[in-house]
């Protein structure tokens, strides 16, 4: 059995490049659900799930209200809604005010997931030009989860992973390639 129950990820500017790379070698047998907030323009009709499907054999879904998260699947936050996780591992969407000028906000996903999964959670924060996600990383750490940040030196935009690292709550600082390998290792460990 894996030590973990779920992975949450956050990314902003430059995130597309991350998304289309890190899941390339993974498929539906991946042992954990992956829930992602990628900042999107609110008026954007999200084509993100369609795009990502071309770059992974995992199941890719736009997170819908009350859906139960399951292993082997990637859940993407819809544009202009916050995505939170409930204690029964279902998804809640919210229309609350923007947090860090963002809706969806990475902090809200990370914090709510930390309360649900505690030390069974992995949180990974990637490239971005703001500081959304830093509070979320702190919450994941506080509740015993594993925190990973993309190396600000090699990330396309360093501000977001950089402010997470500055909190002192990041366990592992990996390049994008190392995160990809880490996920692939998680996948193999389960077999």
């Amino acid at each position: 059995m894996s030590d973990y129950s779920a992975i949450v990820m956050g990314m902003s500017a430059g995130g597309m490049e991350v998304l289309i790379n890190i899941f390339l070698n993974l498929d539906k047998s991946f042992p954990l659900p992956v829930i992602i907030v990628q900042h999107l323009h609110p008026m954007h009709k999200s084509e993100l799930p369609d795009i990502l499907r071309r770059y992974t054999a995992m199941e890719v879904l736009e997170a819908s209200e009350k859906c139960v998260v399951e292993p082997g699947k990637i859940y993407l936050a819809p544009a202009d809604y916050h995505l939170l996780v409930e204690r029964d591992a279902t998804i809640s969407l919210s229309n609350d005010e923007k947090v860090n000028y963002s809706r969806p906000s990475i902090d809200l996903l990370f914090e709510s997931a930390a309360y649900v999964w505690g030390d069974k959670l992995i949180g990974i924060l990637f490239t971005g030009a703001n500081n959304d996600g830093a509070e979320g990383i702190k919450a994941i750490k506080k509740y015993g989860g594993l925190t990973i940040a993309e190396n600000p030196d090699t990330a396309e935009y360093s501000a977001m992973p950089g402010s997470a690292v500055d909190t002192g709550c990041v366990d592992l600082i990996y390049s994008k390639e190392e995160i990809k390998l880490y996920l692939e290792k998680l996948s193999v460990d389960k077999l």
Binding site: L84, V85, E86, R87, S92, S94, D96, L108, E111, S112, Y115
Partner: peptide, 8 residues
């Protein structure tokens, strides 16, 4: 109410 938001 959906608990996550009330909790937040």
């Amino acid at each position: 109410y959906a608990r996550a938001t009330v909790e937040r």
